[in-house]
Simulated scan of single mutants.
Amino acid sequence: MSTQDLPANHADLMDGVYRWQRHIYDLTRKYYLLGRDRLIAGLDVPANGSVLELGCGTGRNLALTARRYRDARLYGLDISAEMLVSAQATIAREGIAGRTLLARADATDFDAQALFGVASFDRVFVSYSLSMIPGWEKTVAAGLAVLAPGGSLHVVDFGQQERMPGWFRSLLRAWLKKFHVSPRDSLREVLESESTKAGASLSFERLYRGYAWLAVVRR
């Protein structure tokens, strides 16, 4: 596992949040982190392609990606050392350590070549991490910067629940705040702006009445 200099405050915060939660994270989050499997199904990884997850957490998404795309080379980074302990265990359990590399790094500012010995990737994805990352806009830019020609960036995260009852939105926001999660109301605008800068195209979809947003940026 590789590492880079990290912003101590946020790294420590995430380690504190997940030191115990990581043990039940996958069991509990499957009920409200909706759209993750749909994102993975839509990756359409090319033969022998490379996939990077920014904010890989417990490794759950990388494991599912490995099952679906049997010859893909997998990479994951996370700022939380605690989460990476779980991710390493997941990778070992799935028997995919030979084609998976993990690193501790800040998703807003990382050097893929230094971390993985790889400068670009066919697919990059971010699943329910932007809503937890300070300066998350930089993560979008960083993800696009490491895309190989013809590659794509895939994002799923909390939407604005725009077609759901107000009471549900209020309760959800209050619950998420307990875990330092803040849905990004400007996500679409940022993706549009960064796509234009990169000369890429954007597709954007609202899932489950706006509960979640799913986006794909293609070079």
Score class of each variant (00 low, 15 high):
Val126Pro: 06
Val146Asn: 03
Ile133Arg: 12
Arg99Cys: 02
Phe158Asp: 09
Leu102Thr: 06
Arg67Tyr: 05
Ala92His: 05
Gly98Asp: 07
Leu115Lys: 15
Arg73Met: 14
Ser127Asp: 11
Leu115Pro: 09
Val45Lys: 08
Asp106Ile: 03
Ala87Glu: 06
Ser86Val: 02
Trp136Ser: 15
Ser80Pro: 13
Ser129Gln: 12
Ser50Asn: 06
Gly55Asn: 11
Asp78Tyr: 05
Glu53Ser: 07
Ala141Arg: 15
Ser80Phe: 10
Ile133Met: 11
Ala87Gln: 07
Thr108His: 05
Ser152Arg: 09
Leu115Thr: 13
Val126Gln: 11
Gly151Arg: 00
Leu77Thr: 07
Ala66Thr: 08
Asn61Ala: 13
Asp44Met: 00
Ser152Val: 00
Leu54Glu: 01
Lys138Gln: 15
Gly150Ile: 04
Thr108Asn: 12
Ala66Gly: 15
Ser129Arg: 09
Leu62Met: 11
Ala119Phe: 01
Val45Asn: 14
Arg99Ser: 00
Arg67Asn: 13
Gly135Ile: 03
Tyr75Ser: 06
Leu153Tyr: 11
Asp122Phe: 07
Ala103Tyr: 07
Arg60Cys: 11
Ala97Cys: 05
Leu101Phe: 03
Val45Ser: 12
Cys56Lys: 12
Asp71Arg: 04
Ala97Glu: 14
Leu153Pro: 06
Ser129Ile: 02
Lys138Met: 08
Arg104Thr: 02
Ile133Tyr: 10
Leu130Met: 08
Cys56Gln: 10
Phe116Met: 12
Ala112Glu: 03
Tyr75Asp: 04
Leu130Val: 09
Gly117Asn: 11
Glu53Ile: 09
Leu84Met: 04
Arg70Trp: 05
Arg68Trp: 00
Gly95Arg: 11
Val155Asp: 10
Val146Pro: 01
Phe158Gly: 04
His154Tyr: 12
Arg67Trp: 10
Pro46Asn: 00
Val124Asp: 14
Ala97Asp: 11
Pro149Met: 03
Glu82Pro: 04
Tyr69Asn: 04
Asp106Phe: 01
Gly95Val: 04
Phe125Cys: 10
Val51Lys: 00
Ala47Pro: 08
Arg99Met: 08
Leu77Gln: 10
Leu77Asp: 08
Arg73Cys: 12
Pro149Leu: 07
Met83Thr: 10
Asp71Gly: 02
Phe158Ile: 02
Gln88Trp: 02
Phe121Gln: 00
Arg99Val: 02
Leu102Gly: 03
Ile79Val: 13
Ser131Lys: 00
Gly42Leu: 06
Thr58Glu: 06
Val155Cys: 14
Leu43Gln: 13
Ala66Lys: 10
Gly76Ile: 06
Thr100Trp: 04
Glu53Asp: 05
Phe116His: 07
Leu62Pro: 09
Leu74Lys: 08
Val51Phe: 02
Gly59Tyr: 03
